[in-house]
């Protein structure tokens, strides 16, 4: 479960090459490198304002980085619009849930699968064969996804009327509806209690195991990150200060300093030594 599996050469899904993003004078992300292989659960962590979400936005096309490259299966996606990127197979969720609240749950999923179909307004007016086939297909698929996230029977409720945890899962289902190869999850367990968090961990694992999707997530909850991810990068002040497996990260001095402030590492070392003795 360490370097060995990673060097087993599954193809690289996404690769960031010294990505830099500035806002005016502020460097939000500073030359970050990252590469994620297929079917990995990869986490980015870091203190508040470390540039995690900005980095996420660079990958999903919300921002265009000033420097560096973003490669998806070896092809540059830098500067592409978000809908093109979604079409290529990257979909995402949001830190504060952003569902289409005036639409039903199943409609949200149907919008998610929008980019996989081609029927247009004339088809809709004339109910052409293509329209009927695609509509039935997407509806069946949406229903299956609904079942998959455990919301069967609630599909005709407005998204805004669903409970919080269900909304989180629905957002993931919407992202899954476009058959993504890479799924970006922005704090998927934010605002959840420990039990809900455990359920979410199981759910994310099942995405990877059952659907074979590569997952990149941002998370604050250390327990969750350590429990789920196979590989972790740590950002601080826009720079990548460490990367490695959860166990490597846990003992990394820089990371502890970044989280608890300078001197904390020494303190902790002292503390743990004292405990050993």
């Amino acid at each position: 479960m360490t370097k060995l599996t990673l060097t087993n050469h599954p193809p690289v899904v996404i690769e960031a090459q010294s990505v830099t993003k500035r806002f005016g004078g502020l460097v939000a992300v500073s030359s970050v490198d990252l590469s994620i292989r297929e079917k990995t659960i990869y986490a980015i962590i870091g203190p508040n304002g470390a540039g995690k979400t900005t980095f996420f936005n660079c990958i999903s096309g919300f921002y265009t980085p000033e420097e560096g490259e973003v490669l998806f299966y070896g092809k540059s996606i830098k500067g592409k619009t978000t809908d093109r990127i979604a079409h290529l197979g990257i979909s995402r969720t949001y830190q504060n849930i952003r569902l289409f609240s005036q639409m039903t749950a199943i409609e949200n999923i149907l919008v998610g699968s929008h980019c996989r179909y081609t029927n247009h307004w004339l088809d809709a007016i004339l109910h052409t064969r293509r329209y009927r086939r695609e509509e039935a297909e997407s509806l069946a698929k949406a229903h299956d996804l609904l079942k998959f996230i455990g919301l069967e029977g609630l599909g005709d409720n407005l998204a805004s009327n669903l409970p919080y945890g269900a909304q989180r899962r629905l957002e993931i289902a919407r992202a899954l509806a476009s058959n993504p190869k890479l799924l970006l999850l922005d704090e998927p367990t934010a605002g959840m209690n420990p039990q809900e968090t455990d359920e979410m961990i199981e759910f994310i694992r099942s995405l990877r195991d059952n659907l074979g999707i590569t997952i990149l997530l941002i998370e604050h909850d250390m327990r969750m990150v350590m429990g789920i991810s196979e590989y972790i990068s740590v950002l601080d002040y826009g720079m990548k200060i460490a990367e490695g497996t959860p166990t490597e990260i846990q003992s990394n001095q820089k990371v502890i300093e970044a989280y608890l402030g300078p001197g904390a590492a020494a303190l902790q070392e002292k503390f743990s030594r004292g405990k050993d003795e």
């Binding site: 978000t82 979604a86 079409h87 979909s91 949001y94 998610g112 929008h114 980019c115 476009s178």
Partner: peptide
């Protein structure tokens, strides 16, 4: 509903 999200959804 949400133009940004709509676009990012494809």
């Amino acid at each position: 509903g949400d133009q940004t999200v709509s676009r990012a959804t494809g």
